[in-house]
């Protein structure tokens, strides 16, 4: 399955950190994503970004994860030369990730 079939996302920014929320559509998907949507996997997916540190916060009661990608926005919204300086499009890219159906 694609991540897009299991979860929805929203992307925000604080300074030069990109913040991506991943929210499971169903409670059973949360466990699958806990196993497969690891920090390493997300860091590897965004290998084109200059991240200093990637962290995952687990929110089981909400069936969600928050990923913080420090350094992803290279200088932050105001200094960045990127077409999308807020990095608002980053989370949507992740929806293309392949995720096994079983935890």
């Amino acid at each position: 399955m694609k991540l897009r079939d299991m979860a929805h996302i929203r992307t925000g920014d604080k300074g030069d950190t990109s913040q991506i929320s991943v929210i499971a559509y169903l409670p059973e998907y949360y466990g699958v994503l806990q196993t497969h949507l690891t920090t390493d996997r997300v860091r590897a997916f965004y290998s084109g970004l200059p991240c200093r540190h990637v962290e995952r916060h687990e929110l089981p009661a909400l069936g969600a994860f928050i990923f913080t990608l420090e350094g992803a926005l290279k200088g932050g919204v105001t200094r960045s030369l990127a077409l999308d300086p807020h990095g608002k499009t980053l989370g949507a890219l992740l929806l293309d990730l392949d995720v096994p159906e079983e935890g």
């Binding site: 925000g12 604080k14 929320s21 916060h57 069936g63 969600a64 928050i66 913080t68």
Partner: peptide
């Protein structure tokens, strides 16, 4: 609940 969760988590760096 889906729109509410997206906005609750929006730009939160540390949910605790």
């Amino acid at each position: 609940t889906a729109t509410c969760k997206e906005q609750l988590l929006y730009e939160i760096l540390d949910p605790a």
